[in-house]
Computed example of a mutant assay.
Amino acid sequence: MTKFAQKMIKSAAALALGASVLTTAVVSGDASASAKTTCKVSHGKLINAKSKKVIAGFKMFNSVLYKNGKKFTGVYKGKYYKQGELYTGLVKKIYFKKGVKANGTFKGVYYKYGKPFTGEKGHVHFKNGKKLNHVTVKGIYYINGVRATGVYEVNGKNVQFKNGKAVADHKAPVITLEGGAKKIYKVKNGEEFTAPKATAKDNLDKTVTVTTKIFNPQGKVIDHIDTTVAGIYKIKYYAKDLAFNKAKITVTVVVEPAKPDTPVVTADK
């Protein structure tokens, strides 16, 4: 066989192969187009476009999962679908995100692998998916999921915490006399006198009551100071916080003796 004849045979073979590939491509394209038109949705059901029969079993069509022609709700291949679409939300207290049991916060609750989380994550403590808040667990007090540091109201009284543990209160309240009152008064005999009022503040407790007692020169408790009776009187103010730390201040009132009457001198007649 001549070289020319060999070239002609190879060319013919190449043309035949090209025609075969082209034919295959056209057939494949027609088959794909045909597959796309195999199914359709009619009256809410997935059916065979030609036979009009419901498609049996599972079938994904336009990103929607069908089972026996109906949009599927349930777990399929490890993912949860609702009405044929990958679901995000709660199902029987299990959190799904795009069909998968998920980690994350949903409507204020933190989930791990789909379940409300109890434990510590990044120094934040959770119980049933919610941050521990204003609660004590195993002797540790939590605020917004974190060990508390600062002063917080617990059972009606203020408590100081450091890293979740209560700190003992050893600081007494501070009593202040109102209106810049003095601690020592000198009162003329018979002059009107009103005992000054006092208030108290505490480092932890919101309110502290001040009680007052008045003592006469003999040390007995009396209701008020009688300025017609000379002597040294004591007004004592007391305050106590919820930790039983006590405070006291004393105001001294000195009532001067009455001045003797000045004799009246008359001229002799």
Rank of each mutant, 00 (worst) to 15 (best):
T2N: 15
I9H: 11
S11C: 15
A16I: 11
L17H: 09
A19Y: 13
V27E: 06
S28N: 11
T38I: 10
V41W: 12
V41R: 15
K45G: 07
L46F: 03
S51Y: 09
S51L: 09
G57T: 05
Y66A: 03
Y66S: 05
K79N: 10
K82G: 10
Q83V: 00
Q83M: 05
T88W: 08
V91H: 03
K92N: 06
K92T: 01
K93Q: 15
F96W: 03
G99D: 11
G99P: 11
A102Q: 06
T105C: 03
F106D: 06
Y110D: 09
K115F: 08
K115V: 14
G122Y: 01
H125P: 08
K131H: 00
L132Q: 03
V135G: 03
T136Y: 00
G139P: 01
N144L: 06
R147K: 15
G150A: 04
N155Y: 04
V174D: 01
K182F: 03
K183T: 11
E191T: 07
E192S: 13
T194S: 13
P196G: 08
A200H: 00
A200M: 01
L204E: 06
V210K: 10
K213I: 06
I214A: 03
P217V: 11
P217W: 10
V221A: 14
I222P: 04
I222G: 03
T227N: 07
T227I: 05
V229C: 06
I235N: 12
Y238W: 09
N245T: 01
V253W: 00
P257V: 11
A258F: 08
A267V: 12
A267H: 10
D268Y: 04
